[in-house]
Design a protein around this nucleic acid. Sequence first.
DNA 1: GTAGTTCACATACCAACGGTATGTCAACGG
DNA 2: CCGTTGACATACCGTTGGTATGTGAACTAC
Lengths: 193, 193
Amino acid sequence: MGRVEQRERTRAELLAVSRRLFATRGYAAVGLAEIVREAGVTKGALYHHFEGGKTDLFRAVLAQVQDEVGRTVATTAGAETDPWDRLLAGCRAFLTASTDHAVRRIMLLDGPAVLGWSEWRAMDEGGSARHLADALTTLVEAGVVVPQPVAPLARLLSGAMNEAALWLAESGDPADLDAVLTALFRMLAAMRA
Amino acid sequence: MGRVEQRERTRAELLAVSRRLFATRGYAAVGLAEIVREAGVTKGALYHHFEGGKTDLFRAVLAQVQDEVGRTVATTAGAETDPWDRLLAGCRAFLTASTDHAVRRIMLLDGPAVLGWSEWRAMDEGGSARHLADALTTLVEAGVVVPQPVAPLARLLSGAMNEAALWLAESGDPADLDAVLTALFRMLAAMRA
DNA sequence: GTAGTTCACATACCAACGGTATGTCAACGG
DNA sequence: CCGTTGACATACCGTTGGTATGTGAACTAC
């Protein structure tokens, strides 16, 4: 086994194990000892791959989760042709995707607290949040939504959906998803010109 | 000095010190040693007052902060007579109050991650979130707002304002507060019957 | 082919952390 | 005045994230 292959394999295993543990028990409750034990390596390997230690490892896991959510939202929204329908489909996709344990715990709960809000937000902009801002910009430019600055609107909607996702993940009742979507779509519909 | 007085004084000092430290550097970055040193006591005193240790101490601090924010929102909103104006005034009061460092860091960032979302939410319901739900309920029952379940709507708005508060605390630009309020009020106005 | 270098880790260790068990002494009640 | 309670202080422990150093296999140059 070549060195590059070995390197990739170890890094991937470290990521997979820590993601699972972080998702189930949270960042603070998981020790590096448990991570490296389940990954079959030692702390030396961990610090070789993630220079910043535990924080850096979490950062990489969060990036992975956000990337997945972003892709899911993008593909689901992309299936719609009408820009307005794209927005609604994207919101629905985000809410359903965020019910997953890993997303909830890593992306919504621990993410801001561990990395700080500004870095979390910067990473969020690279994921699903950017799709929301893009969709809103398109709608404003097309005259579908009343002209207004997109940035604060996107933040408000992003925060609303993040909180709703945390709520939905807890309740587990599928009827709640419909209730949230109804309320959300009512709010969105109000923005139409 | 009597025992009850001494007890109150020590507890208050512990709360004040930890609140300041938690607010400036965050829950994880503050050690118990530093807290008890600045409070002029020892760890024995801390665990005597807060059985649950560091978590319990944080819980008490969070309760204090939330109570303050709740009172501010309630009094500001209470100055308005019209129910709709009360809602708007309450939202504005919450956003301005949440720009404070302690509120931002303790209530919005560390709160959910340290205590878990469900407990954080339960405490939030005792603070400003309840006023929001109450105001919405009143408006729905009065027919000012289109009939709909209040719970999901309150969650969406609460999440939107929490995220907006984090954004505003970071930017510091007072123009951003107006931008957020404009967007928020536009969303709220859309809910009117 | 082989000597030298690099790289991907493993090992051993450390200071600091949250937490606990026990000791102490002043305030209180009778 | 004396026994009890309560509000701490002291001493200690296991574990944690982090680091400095060692090691052997994979690659490179000649």
